[in-house]
Simulated scan of single mutants.
Amino acid sequence: MEINFLALALASLSTLVVGAIWYNPKVFGTIWMKESGTPIEKMQGANMVLIFGMSLFYAFLIALVLQALVIHQMGAFGTVGGNVQDPQYIQFMEAHGTKFRTFKHGALHGFLSGLFFALPVIGVGSLYERRSWKYVLIAGGYWVVSCMIMGAIICGMK
């Protein structure tokens, strides 16, 4: 099973698009800045090339993991140790092929990954950082939506 690097790159880029909308001052940006304690002056002095570059790198790492969560065939591939000549793998692929390789199915698994993994990770960190529930819902919600879109892209692009 080949890795679709174009899908991973597009999924990674989608996080910047979602972030531009999600953290826009007219959506959740103003509330997030207040809840995170980040003044506008601090944001204006940031190295945005570094921030966007590292954001893309981290999103790509997330996309690498998400592909194993949203593409069922990756599990079969891993079960046979990557041996595409294994008779069990061949039998599995003949029976199931690209079943469940849709944008909709990827969105479902991406959503579940965001809801049951990313949101709790944000929530736990926020407890120790003494962040508000508004912060948790905004930051965690961003990752739920982003994982959903990433999953759709990764699973839907064959």
Rank of each mutant, 00 (worst) to 15 (best):
M1C: 08
M1S: 10
F5R: 09
A7W: 06
A9H: 02
S14F: 07
T15A: 06
T15G: 04
T15H: 11
I21N: 02
W22M: 08
Y23G: 05
Y23L: 13
G29E: 06
W32D: 01
W32V: 08
K34C: 09
S36T: 14
G37V: 11
E41R: 13
M43I: 15
Q44S: 10
M48S: 04
F52A: 11
G53I: 15
L56I: 09
L56G: 08
F57L: 15
F57C: 01
Y58R: 09
L61Q: 07
L64I: 13
A68L: 13
A68G: 10
L69E: 03
I71S: 02
F77H: 10
F77R: 03
G82K: 08
G82I: 06
Q85W: 06
P87N: 09
Q88Y: 08
I90F: 02
Q91R: 13
Q91P: 00
Q91D: 13
E94M: 13
E94A: 12
H96S: 06
T98M: 07
T98C: 00
T102Q: 11
K104P: 00
F111Q: 04
F111I: 06
L112Q: 07
G114N: 07
G114Q: 11
L115N: 07
A118W: 01
P120K: 14
S126D: 05
S126Q: 10
Y128A: 04
R131D: 03
R131V: 12
R131W: 05
R131E: 02
S132I: 12
W133K: 11
K134R: 14
Y135V: 06
Y135C: 02
V136W: 01
L137Q: 06
L137M: 15
I138Q: 01
I138W: 01
I138G: 00
A139N: 15
G141Q: 06
W143K: 01
S146C: 11
M148K: 02
M148G: 03
I149G: 00
M150E: 01
I154K: 02
C155W: 02
G156V: 09
M157D: 08
